[in-house]
């Protein structure tokens, strides 16, 4: 009888220790950092072209427009929202700029108009999900279909040229040898970090996502907070579309569509809870870099890009599993 009690006590200790580790607030970011460093080490060993300043900056440039969308999506998911239309907005933005310039509108005015349209789409997303209490997944999925459909109608499905004097520098120039898109992305992450952790609005984001009803009952403008975040996400989509168009010198109606999954994967992998209330932009940034590094490294190793879709899916599902485990750990 004594032996049975002893085994009962000893068995769960390893699992429990792992769960306790998961419940720590920094565990997510720490694990990502370790994973990132391992990834860099492995690719450095496997490919002589991987570890150098040029390639590292190239990874940064490749992920800049994705990171921008993921950065803005992070506070939105923390507050309990979700934006699946963001990548479609990026596509429509490039198309809008190209068409408006074709009509004789000055390019930066065209960019401004495209941003305004994005903001309106964000407001619509926000109003539908808060005032009408529609499910954000369905609402923004519908919006994604509408927006990318409009972009296809406007272009007839064709990619339009976007080589405009005084415009393409925003995608191609460098400042102190750092690509401008990368700078824009890093500044966005930093600004969002400031807003989320240092301001009243930031407190509202975490409160609304942590417990919307409790927040409403202490007089926090939950709906307004969420609507503003949808607008920020849509604007990030528009800026991403602008940068991508400038980089490529072309605007495809579905230029960024394939990256929607990467954006969502990065946010979840970064430790932001799909249930809302928890997460940080630094986790998202690390996750964006990890996904970009994976892509880059696999390309250097001559792995087919089709396999890269598989890797991204696996990483996403691992991230969601980890999120679920962490929820359970916090519940105990």
């Amino acid at each position: 009888m004594a032996t049975t009690t002893e085994t009962a006590a000893a068995a769960p200790s390893l699992k429990r220790r792992f769960m306790e580790l998961l419940a720590k607030p920094w565990s997510g970011v720490a694990m990502l950092l370790v994973f990132y460093l391992i990834l860099i080490a492995v690719f450095s060993i496997l490919s002589p072209f991987f570890f150098n300043t040029r390639n590292m900056l190239q990874i940064g440039l490749n992920v800049a427009y994705i990171g921008l969308m993921a950065a803005a999506g992070t506070p939105l998911i923390i507050a309990g929202g979700l934006d699946l239309s963001v990548a479609a907005i990026a596509g429509l933005t490039g198309v809008m700029i190209s068409l408006l310039v074709g009509l004789g509108v000055p390019v930066w005015v065209a960019v401004g108009l495209a941003l305004a349209l994005a903001a309106a789409i964000g407001v619509a997303n926000g109003l539908f999900t808060t005032r009408l209490k529609l499910n954000p997944l369905i609402t923004t999925l519908g919006m994604m279909s509408i927006v990318s459909g409009i972009a296809l109608v406007l272009t007839g499905g064709l990619t339009r040229p976007l080589m405009i004097p005084g415009f393409n520098w925003i995608g191609n120039e460098r400042v102190f040898s750092i690509p401008i898109p990368l700078i824009i992305m890093v500044v966005t992450f930093f600004a969002l970090w400031l807003v989320m952790t240092k301001t009243k609005f930031g407190r509202f984001i975490y409160a609304a996502g942590g417990n919307a009803e409790a927040s409403r009952l202490i007089g926090i403008p939950v709906e307004r907070t969420v609507i503003v975040l949808y607008v920020i996400s849509a604007l990030a989509g528009a800026v991403a579309g602008t940068i991508l168009g400038a980089m490529l010198g072309a605007a495809g109606p579905n230029a960024a569509g394939s990256q929607l999954l990467t954006v969502i994967a990065a946010i979840i992998l970064g430790g932001t809870s799909l249930n809302g209330g928890r997460g940080s932009v630094w986790g998202t940034l690390l996750a964006v870099l990890i996904l970009g590094t994976l892509n880059n490294g696999l390309t250097l190793l001559n792995v087919s890009s089709f396999w890269q879709d598989v890797t991204r899916g696996v990483v996403l599902m691992l991230a969601v599993s980890l999120d679920q485990l962490r929820n359970r750990a916090l519940g105990e």
Partner: peptide, 12 residues
């Protein structure tokens, strides 16, 4: 359900 915001700190 309507009172605490469990993931925020006591201070927040």
């Amino acid at each position: 359900k309507e009172g605490i915001i469990a993931d925020l700190t006591v201070r927040e």
